[in-house]
Design a protein around this nucleic acid. Sequence first.
DNA 1: ATATTAATAGATAATATTTTTCCTTAAAGA
DNA 2: TCTTTAAGGAAAAATATTATCTATTAATAT
Lengths: 138, 138
Amino acid sequence: MDNLTALFKEKNLKLTPQRYAIYKYLKSTKSHPSAEMIYEALRPDFPTMSLATVYKTVKTLIELGLVQELNVGEDNFRFDANVDTHPHIVCTSCGRVDDIEDAVFEHLNEEVENYTNYKVNTHKLYFYGVCPNCQGEL
Amino acid sequence: MDNLTALFKEKNLKLTPQRYAIYKYLKSTKSHPSAEMIYEALRPDFPTMSLATVYKTVKTLIELGLVQELNVGEDNFRFDANVDTHPHIVCTSCGRVDDIEDAVFEHLNEEVENYTNYKVNTHKLYFYGVCPNCQGEL
DNA sequence: ATATTAATAGATAATATTTTTCCTTAAAGA
DNA sequence: TCTTTAAGGAAAAATATTATCTATTAATAT
């Protein structure tokens, strides 16, 4: 029995094919898809699946700590099954969102505590620029 | 003729009382209000002003470079008339959003370029923690 | 394998936020 | 003051997300 099965059982949640597929898809991609994008991606295999199911599932996955929510400044949210705190970078030309791999800025939390009276727990860092593909096209 | 008047004239935009009030309000506050909050705050002085006017105005102000948009992870946007790139911190207990003053992390842009092949232009940094007020109440 | 039961899927309606439309009003310049 | 044209306000529309409700199905026990 894998982790996912155990975790769902522990929480009295049912590991349905839809939920499994959504999580697996999020694990498989680095594209940080929105609910709509997940829905479209899985439509070939789950033609009857409702968009509401995607929303409900990502919410569940977030509560389980299996997925995190991003907001790069669009009018919707994106989702990432890599729940480690890590920065993202957005191409302002084509809109793609990439992880900034191996760059960990955890020390910024402490630094911010020096500037504020907050107790700092976490952060979300979004960088904006032009991706390699789009640089080539200029 | 002040800067604002000149800038509006240059762009063939009309500096209406509503626009002036919205900009002045955003300049006066550090609360990073949403459109709804701006609308409520100005309602006493502009009881007939439409919420659509608030949305249209902040969009105009953003295009003019007078205001920036924030998204701390709520389901709406917030606005800041301080257009310098500066980090924000969100209290996960009461929801307030503060500037992190004097903390400038411009050097992170260069650092990120070392981790990616992006040309990095700017960033938005959101920290999450517990504000002094809420710490007291625990 | 089957029955039981409780959670979930899917369809749909509802809600919330933001944008658009359309007509009237008013700012800016002549 | 007059003219022009951008902008305001009201309402509808568009988007994204959440909630509701019933039929289905996963999980467990039989």
